[in-house]
Nucleic acid binder design. Structure first.
Lengths: 349, 349
DNA sequence: CGTGCGACTGAAAAGGCTTGCAGAATGATC
DNA sequence: GATCATTCTGCAAGCCTTTTCAGTCGCACG
């Protein structure tokens, strides 16, 4: 059915070895024959069978990408970055969605391990030990999780969160909540620590951690009531999705954002500017991160690992928008509905 | 490095053929040996090399998924559906993101064709001829595009749009716009036709098509000004993302949704309920669609194609929320800012 | 005890490709 | 014209499985 190297060889009147070389190692073959082979190959629509090639070279030309949730725009962006860099490098990419469960991560690694040259794993939900085991099976690069001696690309989680907190403090907030994400999330635990430690920067600050909540809109809805009950004037959510849910719930309950309560997210996913008020958040260059992870993986796979195994935290950026404002003087009770004057800021994207 | 069937054979004291059979065709081998082989294979962590297997069986156990934009939540959901069904059936999936360009679709098909058993192609942007050519290269199932003699799963585009239009008419709207999506999009052209044809259902209706606009938030921003200039009282956008951009732009320009202008989207992606007002839209069961497409592809690949080549349009559902309302009596000029009383509707998801 | 049968098992080919090695052809040198 | 160095090119092995085909073995039956 498909045209094989043998067919091309016959058509071009050369041996299969010559065809193989003409296509893969152009300088080891006479220019004239090379051209002839190339032409007939193109004419016949020949495409080398990568499985067969992989069998002998030991490399598949594929990489795997494992993410917790493809519906989450954060991972969509990362996937896009991984995609594009991989394609440039001539690699195809397997994607596996694990529904945020460690079990499926293990399964994905097992089933992918044999047919890829390496795996990029995003926001791994598995235990440290499990992740180490994965790395033993197949070249592995972690995104958004740091683990001793495992290559990873991470971003400055702590710096981002601190920037948000300083911003809120500058606006006069003194009682601030962190709406935590999944317990199994490495970045959640890092943020949680940074949040707790922030109390030392300035005293007279009351920091309360709430949750954990699911890293979705629904988690934000749930968090909304808890935030209200906690009596804070500002809340930072684990991610933008949760922040958006929070804002929605607060409005439902009759609270105005940011007049009664300020809300900030983390991630700067597109939805952050789709909602009103536009979300104050922390921007991660997600596509760049995806691309960087592929570069790192290829460095390892191709054995050109000169540089360190860990990309320094990529810089993050506090993006101040309309969901955070000065702390209310009297707070607490639902304010009457009032529309603020329309900011004229153009929306991003 | 990796443990091969030969290693297992040696360890279990049998031939490689026996190992192969023990694992793949349990009834063709003595129960005792089967157990012994199974055990040692497990103990050694043997995983058959799928490339080698594919070489001989002609099947790879992989399928390809091609989508225009992974960052678009619509395709994220579809991917998730494809994912989960494929995994259940023991298939791994390659994903390719084409950045909405026909050229990349062709490239993706070419590079995937040799290493998958079939491809699911979502919202193909290529010409009919090109798509036909793809289908000639590899078993292909189309999502969201109908093409004579090519298997596809589509949804009732026309019915969805008509439902929205009837809804708007019932609310008293007489001048209604359709903000069109990409020219290369099949569903856009179908919607465009349905929209134009709708004029016949009731007379005294003024239907204007605007665009084309990009199927993103940014496209909606652009569309917003055009909509205002057109003087309509209601607009249906090509998709939710565009509708959200539209709403944002209208608010920026001082128009209230739905008091001055009603806006409806199509797709019911999560963001539809993340924004305020929640978007009136048409719901597609995206995950189910993804799953169905895999079923269909496998039917073809495995040669069990009893049923027709085309899944009947899957049902869609009009979801009425807060972005559409009764037509304004005097319309046109930006209304003063006024907040409507808060609906108490619970948000979905 | 010889024959035949069934149930298992093993040898070997095949699948498409890369690559080390040897052979052929070409050209240059003496 | 013969020799030798250079390119090129072809042969064949090998990558890991599956699967056909033939063979072994034990056992029941005559």
């Amino acid at each position: 059915m498909a045209v094989t190297i043998r067919d091309v060889a016959k058509a071009a009147g050369v041996s299969i070895s010559t065809v193989s070389r003409a296509l893969a190692a152009p300088d080891k073959v006479n220019e004239a024959t090379r051209l002839r082979v190339q032409t007939t190959a193109d004419a016949m629509g020949y495409r080398p069978n990568r499985a067969a090639r992989g069998l002998i070279t030991g490399r598949t030309g594929n990489i795997g990408l494992i993410v917790p949730d493809l519906e989450n725009p954060f991972f969509g962006s990362v996937s896009k970055g991984v995609q594009s860099r991989a394609r440039e490098a001539g690699y195809a990419v397997f994607v596996a969605d694990t529904d945020e469960t460690p079990a499926m991560e293990a399964e994905a690694v097992r089933s992918l391990a044999t047919q890829v040259d390496g795996i990029v794993m995003c926001s791994a939900r598995s235990s440290d030990d499990a992740v180490r085991r994965f790395a033993g099976e197949v070249p592995l690069v972690l995104i958004n999780r740091r683990l001793e001696r495992i290559p990873s690309v991470t971003f400055d989680n702590g710096g981002g969160l601190r920037a948000v907190l300083r911003h809120l403090v500058a606006l006069g907030h003194r009682r601030i909540a962190y709406a935590a994400g999944p317990v199994t999330s490495w970045s959640n635990s890092e943020r949680s620590q940074v949040f707790a430690a922030f109390g030392h920067e300035s005293s007279d600050l009351e920091l309360v951690e709430l949750g954990n909540f699911a890293p979705y809109f629904s988690g934000g809805i749930e968090a909304g009531d808890v935030v209200i009950a906690s009596g804070v004037t500002a809340v930072v959510a684990f991610n933008d999705l949760m922040a958006v849910g929070l804002v929605d719930r607060l409005r439902q309950r009759g609270y105005s954002v940011p007049d009664d309560i300020s809300v900030a997210g983390i991630d700067n996913v597109p939805v952050a500017t789709h909602v009103w008020p536009h979300l104050t958040t922390v921007d991660f260059p997600r596509i760049a991160i995806g691309r960087a992870s592929v570069d790192m993986l290829l460095d390892i796979v191709l054995g050109r690992t000169e540089h360190s195994h860990r990309v320094p935290d990529v810089a993050v950026e506090l993006v101040i928008r309309q969901s955070t404002g000065v702390a209310p003087t009297t707070a607490r009770a639902p304010s009457p509905h009032h529309t603020r004057t329309q900011p004229t800021t153009a929306s991003r994207q």
